[in-house]
């Protein structure tokens, strides 16, 4: 189990290999479908983003509300492929890490390699367990989006696995890897 401190450095990213189990500590930002759409439109229009994504790691999450006494509600990863249309633009702007679940497009894998970045997967549906590693959250922008707003998460030993490393190695099998109906 590798322990990684966020924000990620280029040296750290070079040591991460697809399949490695890692524990992330430090800060990451959150964002999913609606926030990505807004950020992407700003980038396309050449406008300034309301959050500095350089060297950041983004977690694709829309948490449930926190019960009193909890730092955050259950907060597991959402499916990453829905962000594939937007992710290359963010990576080209300096985003270094993504945390989600499931397959990515070839365009995203190319952008990961091109920008020396990394894609982690967390366990889908382990939201109550994952939330234990999120110690504090604070708003950054798009609060009108509710659960889809962009927040900063302070995490300790956040468990995930390197799904696509900076060389483009990918742990997920594609449909074509499975021989037609067994």
């Amino acid at each position: 189990m590798k322990r990684i401190t966020l924000p990620l450095t280029d040296e750290q990213i070079s040591t991460l290999k697809a399949g490695d189990s890692v524990l992330l500590s430090g800060t990451m930002i959150t964002g999913r479908d609606a926030a990505h759409k807004r950020l992407f439109e700003l980038i396309q229009n050449g406008e300034k983003l309301p959050v500095d994504i350089k060297d950041e790691t983004i977690y694709y999450v829309g948490p449930a509300p926190a019960k009193p006494g909890y730092a955050v509600g259950p907060a597991g990863p959402t499916s990453s492929y829905r962000m594939d249309k937007y992710a290359p633009a963010l990576l080209d702007m300096g985003l270094k890490g993504m945390v989600g679940k499931g397959r990515r497009s070839d365009e995203v894998i190319d952008a990961i390699v091109r920008n020396h970045a990394v894609y982690f997967c967390a366990i889908g549906g382990a939201a109550a367990l994952i939330a234990k590693s999120i110690k504090k959250t604070e708003p950054i922008c798009y609060e009108d989006l509710g659960t889809e707003s962009v927040r900063r998460y302070y995490v300790e030993d956040f468990p995930c696995i390197v799904a696509i490393d900076c060389e483009g190695n990918n742990i997920y099998m594609s449909a074509s890897d499975i021989s037609a109906p067994i």
């Binding site: 449930a64 509600g73 259950p74 597991g76 959402t78 549906g125 109550a128 659960t147």
Partner: peptide
Amino acid sequence: EQIPMCQDT
């Protein structure tokens, strides 16, 4: 803890 098992309820 009577909290949702998944954030997508």
